[in-house]
Nucleic acid binder design. Structure first.
Lengths: 135, 135
DNA sequence: CGTCACATTTACGTGCACGTCAACTTTGCT
DNA sequence: AGCAAAGTTGACGTGCACGTAAATGTGACG
């Protein structure tokens, strides 16, 4: 069995696939969010890197900082950690989870509010459109 | 009934109430997110300002930029706008709403994933805690 | 009337998340 | 072998969202 299932991607392929710039990927590597392997001087991004990148990009959409995301990524990386380390990371993740649930609930509330405002504006626009005689 | 229900707040009262700095409030005013009235040189924040600040802070938690939030605030301010302006703002808001819904769905998915990871780590921690003789 | 706490303007500084440009190597193709 | 395309490492620049310090104003109180 060859390791060929670990199809690696070049930096450009990654950029095209995930709509990011080379700078961004190198930046993430510098921040230890990604660890592409090096073939000579070039970077080769593995399946693992791609999975992590997806999580990074999603985390960003939720307003997490890269440092916070780094903490989260550690959780998905528990295989090579020790129990103490796991515990710490586990606790961090618990807090994140709680925060995310709060955030979702707030988001749901905000969605409802905005929906109401929109339907209000909708009616308002309807009123303003037809020359207000009678109906 | 007097207009006393329009209790205004000083900058410090605002800071204490919403856990922000004076700098932040002045910054938001400069960006036209808030319009406190001026008593001489000092700022007085109205009920309206407080409502807007709540929205600003919540928007930030969702990862919106101040500029995006400014757009959203305009929607809650339709009373003094014209129809054309309303239309534009309305469309902006529609997009935001759609984005928020996507975001919530993603967030829900992320919550579920993280939950799974946590329960996995949980079992792992359990295994590592009690000395397992078998193999 | 002084002063002392709090507010204001002005302006430069900071951390984050990259963008951009220069100056190389490295690789792929003819 | 030669050359352009693509990748690499610095290093400096940028936009956002404020922080922070300096100088000044203002008003309530003993």
């Amino acid at each position: 069995m060859t390791t060929t299932d670990e199809k690696t991607m070049t930096i450009r392929e990654m950029c095209d696939a995930y709509d990011v710039t080379p700078r961004t990927l190198r930046f993430y590597e510098a921040k230890e969010l990604l660890q592409p392997i090096r073939q000579g001087t070039k970077r080769l991004f593995t399946k693992r890197d791609r999975a992590r990148l997806k999580l990074i990009l999603r985390g960003k959409r939720f307003g997490f900082s890269l440092e916070e995301i780094r903490q989260l990524l550690a959780l998905y990386d528990l295989g090579d950690s020790q129990a103490t380390q796991i515990r710490a990371t586990y606790d961090v993740a618990q807090k994140h989870l709680a925060g995310m649930i709060v955030q979702r609930d707030e988001l749901t509330a905000a969605i409802d509010e905005l929906r109401e405002q929109l339907s209000w504006a909708d009616r308002m626009l309807a009123d303003m459109s037809h020359p207000e005689a009678a109906e």
